[in-house]
């Protein structure tokens, strides 16, 4: 089927097989930050923005992205470096495999929630599994990042 979509601002017209999940399509277009961790919508690794909303790209049939804007971490280089730096400073990057999906959701949260509490942060990010860090280091990093943003960073 014919599709038109924007990946990280770049317009793409393509002929696709519609039962391709958005996830696999994005990887085929070079967005390797988008990872698959499960088949059951449970892990959050494949999080991208569909029209600015954090979404599981494994769950979205490709044609749902028709005429839509998709953002992956590849399209948020400076944000990734800024937020990622806080993770790196905590050693909370660890294996890194869950990081892109996690960053996508943290950045979405930062836009959506104003001054969230620790519980609100944990609830918003709970769909992002991580097996390495035990989440505690990620929480430290996120709080420092939000504080940095509050101070106008």
């Amino acid at each position: 089927m014919e599709i038109k979509l924007w990946i990280n601002g770049k317009l793409i017209n393509d002929d696709v097989s519609p039962d391709t999940p958005l996830l696999e399509y994005l990887r085929s277009k070079g967005c390797y930050s988008v990872k698959r961790g499960c088949e059951t919508s449970n892990c959050g690794l494949c999080t991208v923005w569909l029209e600015d909303k954090p979404t599981l790209s494994c769950t979205v049939p490709l044609m749902r992205a028709n005429n839509k804007h998709i953002t992956t971490l590849e399209g948020l280089k400076s944000d990734a470096e800024e937020l990622g730096g806080f993770l790196a400073d905590e050693g909370a990057d660890q294996c890194g495999f869950c990081n892109p999906g996690f960053l996508m959701n943290v950045l979405a949260m930062a836009k959506e929630l104003e001054d969230p509490t620790e519980d609100e942060i944990n609830e918003y990010l709970t769909g992002n599994l991580c097996r390495c860090t035990g989440y505690t280091g990620q929480l430290r990093a996120v709080k420092k990042y939000l504080e940095h943003k509050r101070k106008g960073g």
Binding site: S33, E81, G84, A88, D89, G96
Partner: peptide
């Protein structure tokens, strides 16, 4: 001393560094 992992920035910015990538 606490020090960033040498591969940290590649990992947090989602570079294609894993087997399937």
């Amino acid at each position: 001393r606490p020090m960033r992992k040498k591969d940290a920035m590649a990992l947090v910015t989602g570079q294609p560094v894993y087997t399937d990538d």
